[in-house]
């Protein structure tokens, strides 16, 4: 049996972190939480494997969530990266596109849509897809 997909959720708002984590845990995911970009980068640098990462953009400073995305997208196998932000602008959205982020959601996030997207992205075999590219 395939193990539960492992998610890293990154948000500096404790309530968001707690709620999102609970929602995905109830759906059978293994969830690791990070309350800042620095914490998330630490998790990524420690060799933990994640199937998907959901990150806020504005934490220690504006758009710093892009650093989380950048670090995640360098990993092999590459996790899916979803950005959730209440402060979308042309600059950060264009940066996300250039980085090849997999999904860009604006807050308030539609939870059903987020669950659907994360489910679709985290259940695929990323290693095969990287090999194909």
């Amino acid at each position: 049996m395939r193990p539960a997909p492992h998610l890293l959720i990154v948000d500096d708002e404790p309530n968001v972190l707690l709620t999102l984590g609970m929602i995905f845990e109830q759906d059978g995911y293994r969830v690791t939480r990070a309350g800042s970009c620095a914490e998330a980068l630490h998790e990524l640098a420690n060799g933990h494997m994640f199937d998907a990462i959901i990150t806020d953009l504005n934490m220690e400073k504006p758009d710093i969530g892009l650093d989380v995305a950048r670090a995640a997208l360098r990993l092999h196998p590459r996790p899916a990266v979803v950005i959730c932000t209440g402060y979308a602008d042309i600059k950060n959205a264009r940066a996300a596109l250039q980085l090849r982020v997999d999904y860009f959601a604006t807050k308030p996030v539609d939870l059903d849509e987020l669950k659907l997207v994360v489910g679709r992205l985290s259940h695929r075999d990323t290693r095969l897809e990287e090999k194909a590219s």
Binding site: I90, A93, L97, V101, F104
Partner: peptide, 15 residues
């Protein structure tokens, strides 16, 4: 923002 968001979410590489 909406067009860039569409581009990302639909899997485009560039807009």
């Amino acid at each position: 923002v909406p067009t860039l968001q569409q581009a990302i979410n639909r899997g485009f590489d560039q807009l």
